[in-house]
Design a protein around this nucleic acid. Structure first.
Lengths: 154, 154
DNA sequence: CTTTATTAGTCAGGCAATCTGACTATATCT
DNA sequence: AGATATAGTCAGATTGCCTGACTAATAAAG
């Protein structure tokens, strides 16, 4: 009666190519960090903001510098920093070395986010190291590090 | 005199964590595919469209099915498919098995894109395999495949 | 030391890619 | 036949990015 059952799954999918193989774990890192940050009370942070925490220097960084590192325009970085400043995660202080510039610095709340994100990733790394075995996981990180160095981005 | 030279680079950056290590090569795959597709005359495709080519079945797929696989809403997938149909990469044909549905199918032009994207990734994989050595590159793919299988996404 | 060019950042406006909610038409189940 | 579920569209909003034009401060050239 039913015409429903689609032809019986012609094959078991071609193996994923490197694009999907990188995308899936990468998206999982983003998802996990976001989930853990929400649980830690930082629910007003969205994935687009993570790059700021990742790229900012301990003593603060210029907005233009952050934009270059993140490879977005200074206007887009301004938008992200505005939001983060409004939500109390960063503050702008005048740069004593250059009257045009200000330094974007993490507040105490911003520092807490950085620590929470780092802890979240470390938990995930622990899970993955357990899955693959520590040696293979370390080899994975070394290989990815070499690729990243070659690509030459932040 | 000059106050300019920032303190001489306090340290050589902490090692990247797994998030950045996955993000950098992943973004490189996207950048390279896009670059090669532009060169091949498919400059009207944007990275957001790639997922459709990646997820569509040879005989066509339902829009809702594509949305589920891509983990976006059916409305968002509708937006992408509308664009691709308007640009001649896919066509909607009525689903003979279900009057509510249509099947999204690649046109000849869409097939050409899929082949070009695959070739682009294969070139990139060749470069990376040369960089790491074939054995380490194969091990990298195996490790990423196991992580992807565990995460359980497309 | 003044003019010129460069740099840091903002303002204004626009587009792409997502979302939610409400709806229509068709299918399926009881 | 009636109730429920599913495929897809319509309408409207938001986020994250862009380009272009601008201001203010600095640095370089004469």
């Amino acid at each position: 009666m039913t015409v429903k059952p689609l032809p019986p799954a012609p094959v078991g999918r071609p193996p994923r190519m490197i694009g999907a193989l990188l995308r899936i774990p990468f998206q999982e890192t983003v998802r996990r960090i976001h989930e853990d940050l929400v649980r830690a009370g930082f629910g007003d942070l969205r994935p687009a903001h993570f790059v700021v925490f990742q790229l900012i220097d301990p003593g603060g960084a210029r907005q233009t510098e952050l934009a270059e590192r993140a490879q977005i325009t200074k206007q887009s970085m301004g938008y992200l920093v505005d939001y983060l400043a409004g939500a109390g995660y960063v503050e702008r202080v005048p740069d004593p070395r250059d009257g045009r510039a200000s330094l974007v610095r993490l507040t105490a709340r911003g520092d807490a986010v950085e620590r929470a994100a780092r802890a979240s990733l470390e938990r995930l790394e622990g899970e993955w190291a357990a899955l693959l075995g520590p040696a293979r996981y370390a080899a994975l990180k070394r290989a990815l590090t070499e690729l990243s160095d070659t690509i030459g981005q932040v």
